[in-house]
């Protein structure tokens, strides 16, 4: 977690100038993989949200009885 705060790790070491030199070939290469990771990440987030919702529903809401 510390590297997120200080940003001194090897991973974060690349500089801004390299970003602007983004080549179409590099972009095409990574686009072969994208958005597999994004799909995995967002789908897990939505799944967790659904689980959370049903947890509240079944374990908190329903036991507290009916109102209407």
């Amino acid at each position: 977690m510390l590297f997120l705060l200080l940003g001194r790790s090897a991973l974060a070491g690349k500089t801004r100038s390299e970003d602007t030199g983004l080549s179409q070939a590099d972009l095409d290469t990574v686009m072969e993989e994208v958005p597999k990771g994004a799909l995995a990440l967002s789908a897990s987030a939505v799944l967790l949200l659904l689980c959370g919702w049903f947890f509240v529903y079944f374990f908190i809401f329903v036991p507290r009885g009916t109102v209407g």
Partner: peptide, 14 residues
């Protein structure tokens, strides 16, 4: 959430 994750995924893979 999906579009921005995918955008960041591009950056991370680059």
């Amino acid at each position: 959430v999906f579009t921005i994750s995918a955008s960041l995924e591009i950056a991370g893979r680059l």
